[in-house]
Design a protein around this nucleic acid. Structure first.
Lengths: 207, 207, 207, 207
DNA sequence: GATGAATGAGTGTTCATTCAT
DNA sequence: AATGAATGAACACTCATTCAT
């Protein structure tokens, strides 16, 4: 599916609004007003408000697929790979934070039924990649056995999501005064914290 | 603020619906129907739908306050305290998962402005308690210095929240076939994973 | 099902509008405006526009049921019974001409699916009554055999309906200048014409 | 007014839809989709949806005009003429049942104002022809005097129209299982019933 | 001559809330 | 104290039509 310029503009406006006010909390009129188009255009272009959301998912996920394959190829240690993977992961979630937030909500919303196969596929690929890195590390005797690999990804994304959802609170206690400072914190201190946490987990010998 | 029996029933019904379908996705008629009361009761008892949400927050948080004070008193090692704290923490979030989920989204919703002072206060107390434990451990040379204490709590809650939001996905890949199995997994494997992760972080010596 | 005063007022307004402008050609706002009520009342009272129509049918048909049973009991000749039946029949259709017109249309409209069991029942009862009168006449040697009884009723109603649908045309060529004159024509000349027609059919010996 | 091939195709599609779902119940998009043309074509070719209807009337009526003139010329008895006229009449209405059904309702619709002069003209010609046949029969002493000639035509068309509008009901009670059986019934039993009815009326001596 | 894009007005319905009792 | 009736505003969506090309 391909989108024209006007459609993409609508998608971007809608994405921000959905993230800020929720899907149900956003009216098509609001979207139309901000996107500077006629209300009817949304039905015209996407069919319905729900289909607009689906198109949004398609649009965003199509831009997430590839990219990280070459990460594992590089001739670096598993530890470094983990660092790189986490950095890449956090960047991706942060850059796509709107759609992540929207889906985060709609996923847990029993009412809506969106086709999330593409999204699940992305998650599965991530999981497989992570698994291969960890197994490589375990073979080399660097990582401990008995790692619940499936819970690593939610630890990373969950921490970031929670942090971001409570942005005002954390900005306050961490003294982050601008959007720039906040983003900088995520990309440095926060990323390092997560990297350290996961690496610690991997090498930590439980009694 | 105190609530009578009928009000509490409304709060419980509304809590579940808000969690399942979102605040905007739930109509007062729906609540009234399930709670078996007249629609007008909601405005009558709480003033408005928004104030109902605020009352819900007050009601739930008032039941969260105290409790953990005596945790730190016990004559056990900081490591054991961390274990206990995390277990307690996960249990609390899991048992109050509905209100957590609701707040998770309403917090990040620019439209809504709920008074969250009580909630912030709880978070601050948690943070202080965690801080005192970690500092105790650091003094005893058990924990590393340079821990970003503020990011530990979001790591715990974030992981759990994310896990729970993607319940269908994780139930699938982990083979959890019933509600009971799922809850059991959270209380054992998941809890151990988080405990291990945080303890690893605290003792892990970064190069 | 029972209707209160306000509901009946809405039904009457809607009936006239549906008859004049068709179901699809009438908006609920138009009904609300003329009935001097809020638009939301229609959904509130009847559930939807379609259910309003169904209620209208129920309301009108419930007033049609009984009545004619005693017609056949009277100790008069079959010929006189036919006269009485036709007069009664024309009066009933004419007095309920709005709902007849509406149903006439909606019946033949593939889109709509209204529950017409009650209406069908009325038709069947009419048919049975007519049948018994004609058979009585045939037994007495007054009426010819080989009457297609099922086609008598459509001849009567069809003629009246067609006449009424083309009211402007017939008023013109028959010089009926007022509503009163028109109604008077229906009740006298038209009725006599139909009575004569049906009686002729019943006694007419085909070669 | 002349129509090109494409216009005629649109008219035919629209005619069927208008008959099936009513004028207001049919959208131009629906017509365009089925006729496999662009939506804008309808406004482009006909000016508007309403003018499309008017064109349809013009188109259909132009094909109805002549034809029956030679019926009366033939050297047959008035009775036979009546039979022929009714047969011709029923065939014509049946073959043009779509436009008849449409007009049936739009005529009685106060909203719409279609130019029906051509249609009225056809009706007047029919009336005149019928009148001349009956007067011929009366002169020959075959028909009774005191016939309300204007009510004969509505009796014929009305009966057929009513029968057709209630097609499902009559198909049911008459055991007509296919379109073919139905049409056959109209052309034989129904036609004979009407012929018999009208002839009976004409020769019937009222007490 | 013909059409895809776009529009403003209108559709039926649902919303949270208020009012009279 | 409690509620059924009622309301105006808003909802997503569809309509016939127009316009630029």
């Amino acid at each position: 599916m391909e989108f024209n310029e006007k459609q993409i503009e609508i998608l971007l406006v809608a994405e921000q609004l959905f993230a800020e006010e929720g899907f149900d909390g956003t009216s098509v009129r609001e979207i139309a007003k901000i996107a500077n188009i006629n209300v009817a255009m949304i039905s015209y272009y996407f069919g319905s408000k729900e289909k607009l959301l689906e198109s949004m998912v398609v649009y965003r996920i199509s831009g997430m697929k590839l990219q990280l394959e070459n990460l594992i190829q590089e001739n670096i240690t598993p530890i470094e790979k983990i660092d790189k993977l986490i950095e890449f992961y956090i960047k991706r979630v942060y850059n796509n934070r709107c759609i992540y937030q929207i889906l985060h909500f709609e996923l847990s919303n029993k009412k809506r039924e969106i086709n999330l196969d593409a999204f699940t596929q992305v998650k599965n690929e991530n999981l497989k990649l992570l698994e291969s890195i960890i197994k490589e590390g375990q073979l080399q005797g660097l990582f401990q056995p008995n790692i619940t690999i499936e819970l690593i990804s939610p630890t990373i994304i969950g921490a970031l999501t929670h942090f971001h959802m409570n942005k005002p609170y954390f900005s306050e206690i961490l003294g982050l005064k601008s959007e720039q400072e906040y983003e900088n914190y995520v990309m440095t201190t926060f990323t390092k914290h997560i990297q350290k946490t996961i690496k610690a987990l991997l090498v930590y010998e439980d009694k």
